[in-house]
Amino acid sequence: MRARDRTAVSALRATLAALDNAEAVPMDEAKQAGAVELSPVGVGATEAARRGLSEAEVRDIVRAEIAERLDAAARLTAPAHAERAARLRTEAAVLLRLLDSAA
């Protein structure tokens, strides 16, 4: 990361966001506030507990991110999109190396 590898940073940020989204509590499980006067008060009073992901779920999400990038790269067949397709393939390779090193 010190070399400012923008492709790797982009892939890691997007994957971290996907993991963060997967930890979010679905709206139907989150507590809904009623009247304003009954609302909780104080710092963090409205925070919902995040759900924890198992290692298998994390690996599945990273694999899905890899597949998404490879699928998008495969769809970009026009010569004008060659650079974007190469970047997507590089991002997938970064994630694959990360997944392999964690196993």
Score class of each variant (00 low, 15 high):
75 R>C: 08
56 A>F: 02
43 V>F: 10
57 E>M: 08
100 D>W: 05
100 D>F: 07
84 R>G: 01
101 S>P: 11
19 L>H: 02
43 V>T: 12
61 I>M: 06
45 A>Q: 08
34 G>T: 11
26 P>K: 01
5 D>P: 08
96 L>S: 11
33 A>L: 14
14 A>N: 01
27 M>L: 15
67 A>M: 00
59 R>P: 02
57 E>T: 05
87 R>M: 10
87 R>I: 04
95 L>Y: 06
17 A>F: 08
25 V>F: 14
93 A>T: 06
90 T>F: 03
95 L>G: 08
43 V>Q: 11
7 T>F: 04
82 A>C: 03
75 R>F: 11
79 P>C: 03
43 V>K: 07
100 D>N: 12
1 M>E: 14
16 L>S: 02
65 E>T: 00
1 M>D: 09
101 S>A: 15
43 V>S: 09
2 R>N: 03
21 N>H: 10
90 T>L: 05
14 A>F: 00
36 V>Y: 05
80 A>P: 02
42 G>K: 02
90 T>Y: 09
15 T>E: 01
67 A>Y: 02
32 Q>H: 15
64 A>Q: 14
29 E>H: 13
64 A>F: 06
99 L>Q: 12
12 L>K: 00
84 R>P: 02
53 L>R: 07
65 E>H: 00
61 I>G: 00
24 A>E: 09
36 V>N: 07
44 G>S: 05
33 A>C: 13
36 V>D: 04
42 G>V: 08
7 T>V: 09
45 A>C: 13
11 A>M: 04
89 R>N: 15
90 T>G: 04
14 A>L: 01
49 A>H: 08
75 R>L: 12
48 A>I: 02
25 V>L: 15
69 R>Y: 06
82 A>F: 04
55 E>T: 12
44 G>Y: 03
75 R>V: 07
68 E>Q: 06
47 E>P: 04
51 R>Y: 03
24 A>Y: 01
18 A>K: 01
18 A>G: 07
41 V>K: 08
42 G>D: 02
27 M>P: 09
71 D>C: 04
96 L>E: 11
66 I>P: 05
94 V>N: 02
62 V>P: 00
62 V>G: 04
92 A>I: 06
41 V>S: 12
66 I>F: 03
49 A>Y: 06
22 A>K: 04
10 S>H: 11
34 G>N: 12
28 D>G: 06
97 R>W: 10
63 R>D: 13
88 L>M: 14
60 D>E: 11
13 R>W: 10
56 A>V: 14
74 A>Y: 02
51 R>E: 11
65 E>R: 00
71 D>K: 06
62 V>L: 01
99 L>S: 03
84 R>D: 10
51 R>H: 09
40 P>V: 12
20 D>T: 14
87 R>K: 07
74 A>H: 01
20 D>P: 02
92 A>N: 10
12 L>P: 00
9 V>S: 05
42 G>W: 12
19 L>S: 02
50 R>A: 11
50 R>D: 13
82 A>Q: 08
14 A>Y: 03
35 A>S: 13
43 V>D: 08
57 E>D: 13
22 A>Q: 11
93 A>L: 11
5 D>C: 05
35 A>N: 13
68 E>T: 09
